[in-house]
Design a protein around this nucleic acid. Sequence first.
DNA 1: TTATCAACCGCAACCGGTTGCACAACCGGT
DNA 2: ACCGGTTGTGCAACCGGTTGCGGTTGATAA
Lengths: 337, 337
Amino acid sequence: MMNNPITIIDIAKLLGISKSTVSRALNNHPDISQATKDAVKKVAESLHFKPNIVASSFRHKKSKVIGLIVPQISYFFFPSVILGMEEIVHDKGYTLLILQSNESYEREVENLDILIANNVEGILASVSRKTKNFDHFQKIIDMGMPLVFFDRVVKDLNADMVLVDDITGSYNAVMHLLENKRRRIAICTGNLNLLICTNRLQGYKMALQEKGIPINEDLIISCQTPEEAEQETLRLLNLENPPDGIFAISDLTMTGVMRGIYKMKLQVPKDIAVIGFCEEPFRSMYNPPLTAIQPMGFEIGRKSAEILFEHILIEVYAHAEPQVIYLEGKLVIGGST
Amino acid sequence: MMNNPITIIDIAKLLGISKSTVSRALNNHPDISQATKDAVKKVAESLHFKPNIVASSFRHKKSKVIGLIVPQISYFFFPSVILGMEEIVHDKGYTLLILQSNESYEREVENLDILIANNVEGILASVSRKTKNFDHFQKIIDMGMPLVFFDRVVKDLNADMVLVDDITGSYNAVMHLLENKRRRIAICTGNLNLLICTNRLQGYKMALQEKGIPINEDLIISCQTPEEAEQETLRLLNLENPPDGIFAISDLTMTGVMRGIYKMKLQVPKDIAVIGFCEEPFRSMYNPPLTAIQPMGFEIGRKSAEILFEHILIEVYAHAEPQVIYLEGKLVIGGST
DNA sequence: TTATCAACCGCAACCGGTTGCACAACCGGT
DNA sequence: ACCGGTTGTGCAACCGGTTGCGGTTGATAA
C-alpha cells in the first residue's frame, strides 16, 4: 500500500553518483555539469520519479502550500474568489489548502492551527460572521506568517486587505434606483458586525442624503439567512406605505428578498425595483435578470493572492503600513430596475 | 519569519528525559508511566507545543490528508458534497485537500500528481467532463491508494463509487410530469460521455415507454453550458409543436432552460412544466420554486468519505468487488409542475 | 541470594531531500 | 615542478518526530 519507491537514492545508485548530486542536478544547481544534469533528468524521467514534497518541505520548511479560510464554499461569491486565487497560486507552483469555518468562531481558530501545523507559507482569510475576537489572527501575524484578508476583513490588525469599495458600490446602486424615480428605498443588510455590511449601509445613506431623502429606519432590515430575509421582506411589503425599491447587499439575502416579492405576486420592476451585489451566473438566474453591482469575486481572489505572494517571495517586504486595496464593482444593468 | 521553535526536544531537555519518551508520552504509548505522561503533557501545554505534522507525516508516511478532485467548486451541488465530506473527514481528524480540474483532463492528471506528492492517504474524485482516458486513475489504484469516485464515476475501474440512482430519479421525474398530463416532454441532458447523463436519459426513456409514448429525438437536447441550454430551449419552444414539459438534468442546464422560458414569456407551469435535479437553496431561487429530484450532494459527500475511510482505517479490506452505492433522490414538489 | 519478569525509558537509526564544507581534478600561468 | 583558482562531486549532518531493540530498575518468585 502506497509505494512511490523511486527516490533520489535510486537514481543515484543507478548512475553511480551521490544523492546530493542528484538533488542538485534536479534543482539545476550551477555547480553541476550539464552532462550530469542531463543524465540525471533522463533517468528521473524514465523512472517517473516524483520528488517527495513532504520530505523536501520538511527540510527547508517551505511547503508550497497556501492556506485559505472562508466562511463557506457555497453560493457564488466564494467559489469565484477561490477560482481567482487558484489561478495565481497555481502559476507560482503552489497549492491551495481550503478550509471552511462554517461561520463558527471555534472552527476558525481550529482551522488556523491546522494551517500552521501543515506548514503553510501564507494565509488568505475571510472571517466568520461570529468572530469578534481576533487574537488568533494576531498570533499568526506575530509569528511572521504572511496574512491577507479579503472581503470580510479585519481592521486594526497589521495585515493587508482586499475588498470591494462597498461604500461607492452601494452608493451607486442606490443612486441608480433614485435616478429611476424610486423614492422609498429599502435596504436588506446583513450582520452589522461585518464591516462590509456597515459600509454598504453607509453608501445607502449617503446616496439618500445627497438627494435630500430622509433616512427611514423602518426601511432598513438586517438579515443573516435567506429565510430571515424573506420574512422581513414580507413585513416590509405589507407596510401601509411599502417600499418601491429594495437593495439587497448579498446573494444570500437576495434570494430571500426575491422569494418574498414572488410570494406577494409583485411585478419586478413595475411594482418594486430590485438591486443587489451579485456574481454573474447568479444575477441572471432570476426573472428578470437583476441589476447588480459586481462583487468582483474573481478579481478579489487574484489580487489577494498576488499581494500574499509579494510577502512570501520578496525577502524584505517594504510596506510599513498594511495595504488596503479597494476594487470597484461596476453596475450591471439587468431588468429588475 | 515562521518560527514554531518548540519541539519535543525542548520538552525533553526541560524535563531531563529523552525525546523518544516525550514522543511516546504525547502519543499515549503504554510503555510510559502515567506520571511521565502527565508531566510531559503539562509542559507541552504550557509551551503551546504543536507537533510538526510535516515531520510526523514524513516519518510514518501518513499525512492525515484526504485528496479531493472536483470539476469545479461552483454552483450548488459540489459545495454540498464538500460539506458532507468535511463532516466525516474532520471527525476522523483528517483534512481535505481540494483541487479543481476545471473540466480539464490535463489539470486532472496534474492534480493527481499533486495529491500523491503531498502524501494524501486517500482520494475522492469526480471526473472531468473531458476525461476519456483513465490511466491516471488506474495508476492510483495500482499503487494501492484508496480511491472512491462519486457522482461522475468511472466504470470498469476497480474502485468504489457513490452516486444517485440516476435512472430511477430520472424515471420518477418524468413519471411525475406524465401524471400531470404532460405528453410532449423534452429533456435537456448534458455531455453524453458522462454516465450520469446517459443514465438520466435512460430513465427518461423508460418512463415514456412505460406510458406508451414514443421517443421523439427532436425533444432531446444535449447542452454543456447555460448559454447552450438557453439557445436549445428557445429552439425547442419555437418548434411548431413545442413541448409542454421539460426536464433539465442538472443545475447548470436548468438556469439556461429557465432563461429560455422567461425570454419566451411563458408561464410556468401553465404553459410549460419544469422539473430538474436541484439542490435545495437553488431550487427555491426560481419563481415558482422548482419541482425537483434531490441530487443528494451532502449525502453523497458523507457516504463517499465514509467508504474511503473503510479502506484507509481497516488494514485488510475485505471487498473483492468494488462497492457501488446508489442513493435515492427524493422528489420535492415545487410550483413548477 | 539469585534468577525472572514486567514496567519504563534511552539510544540510535530512520524517513528523503537539502546544503555547508571538504576535496579532487584540471586549468593556465610562472 | 609549483601555485592559485575554478569546476564538479561526495560526505555527512540536518530537519523533528517515530520506533525497534536493548538496558536499567525494582519487585517477585525460586
